[in-house]
Measured scan of single mutants.
Amino acid sequence: EDYYQILGVPRNASQKEIKKAYYQLAKKYHPDTNKDDPKAKEKFSQLAEAYEVLSDEVKRKQYDA
């Protein structure tokens, strides 16, 4: 799945936009606030993985290549 789609940001998003999108979605899908939703944990880990790659310039360049 596309990391940009997961975070809901365009491919040319700035680091600030990526961070903002991640924090909004992380708050929304955090397992502690969605105890009754088994998919929230999965969504949250996808968000974390996408953010880890896109927030790191080197990893992001490799991902975009």
Score class of each variant (00 low, 15 high):
Asn34Gly: 07
Gln15Lys: 11
Val9Glu: 00
Ala48Glu: 10
Leu25Ile: 05
Lys35Gln: 14
Ala21Ser: 05
Leu25Asp: 02
Lys20Arg: 15
Ala26Lys: 13
Lys19Thr: 15
Lys61Met: 07
Ala13Asp: 00
Ala50Val: 07
Pro10Val: 06
Pro31Thr: 09
Ala21Met: 08
Glu57Asn: 06
Gln5Phe: 11
Tyr22Asp: 00
Asp36Lys: 09
Ala13Gln: 01
Lys41Leu: 14
Asp64Trp: 02
Tyr51Asp: 01
Leu47Phe: 06
Asp56Met: 02
Glu52Phe: 08
Tyr51Gly: 02
Val58Thr: 10
Leu7Ala: 00
Pro38Met: 13
Glu57Gly: 05
Thr33Arg: 12
Leu47Thr: 04
Ala65Met: 13
Val9Ala: 02
Ala48Gly: 09
Ala13Tyr: 01
Ser45Tyr: 13
Asp64Ala: 02
Tyr4Cys: 01
Asn12Ile: 06
Ile6Tyr: 04
Asp2Val: 04
Glu17Val: 08
Ser55Leu: 04
Lys59Ile: 03
Tyr4Asp: 00
Asp32Lys: 09
Glu1Leu: 15
Lys27His: 10
Lys28Pro: 04
Lys43Gln: 07
Leu54Gln: 00
Tyr51Thr: 01
Thr33Asn: 13
Lys39Phe: 13
Tyr29Cys: 06
Tyr23Val: 15
Phe44Glu: 03
Arg11Ser: 05
Asp37Glu: 05
Glu57Val: 12
Lys27Val: 12
Tyr51Phe: 12
Gln5Glu: 09
Gln24Asp: 12
Glu17Lys: 08
Tyr4Val: 00
Tyr51Cys: 03
Phe44Pro: 02
Lys19Ala: 15
His30Asp: 15
Lys43Leu: 11
Gln62Ser: 08
Leu25Glu: 05
Ala21Val: 05
Ser14Gly: 06
Asp32Gln: 09
Glu17Trp: 11
Arg11Gly: 04
Leu25Val: 04
Leu54Ser: 00
Ser14Trp: 03
Ala50Leu: 03
Asn12Ser: 11
Glu17Ser: 08
Ser45Phe: 13
Gln46Trp: 10
Gly8Arg: 10
Phe44Tyr: 14
Tyr3Asp: 00
Tyr63Lys: 02
Glu1Ile: 14
Pro31Lys: 12
Ala65Val: 09
Lys28Phe: 09
Gln46Ile: 11
Lys41Cys: 09
Ala65Ser: 10
Arg11Cys: 07
Glu57Thr: 11
Asn34Ile: 12
Leu25Asn: 05
Gln62Ile: 13
Glu42His: 11
Tyr63Asn: 02
Glu42Val: 11
Gln15Ile: 13
Lys39Met: 12
Glu49His: 08
Gln5Asp: 08
Lys39Gly: 12
Gln24Ala: 14
Tyr63Ala: 02
Lys28Cys: 09
Tyr23Pro: 02
Asn12Pro: 02
Lys43Trp: 13
Gln24Glu: 15
Asp2Asn: 13
Asp36Thr: 11
Tyr23Gly: 08
Ile6Gln: 04
Tyr23Trp: 11
Tyr63Thr: 02
Ala40Leu: 11
Lys27Gln: 13
Arg60Val: 01
Leu47Val: 12
Asp64His: 03
Tyr3Ser: 01
Gln62Tyr: 07
Lys35Val: 10
Tyr4His: 01
Gln46Val: 12
Tyr22Trp: 09
Ala26Phe: 15
Val53Ala: 03
Asp2Pro: 03
Tyr29Val: 06
Asp37Val: 05
Asp32Ile: 11
Val58Lys: 08
Ala13Ile: 02
Lys43Tyr: 11
Pro31Asp: 09
Gly8Ala: 07
Glu49Met: 14
Lys19Ser: 15
Val9Met: 04
Lys41Pro: 11
Ala26Ile: 11
Val9Gln: 02
Glu1Phe: 15
Glu1Gly: 13
Ala50Met: 03
Leu54Val: 03
Ala13Thr: 04
Gly8Val: 03
Gln5Ser: 12
Pro38His: 07
Glu52Val: 08
Gly8Asn: 10
Ala65Pro: 04
Ala21Ile: 04
Glu49Val: 12
Lys39His: 14
Ile6Val: 11
Arg60Gly: 01
Ser14Lys: 07
Ala21Tyr: 03
Tyr4Glu: 00
Ala13Cys: 07
Asp56Gln: 02
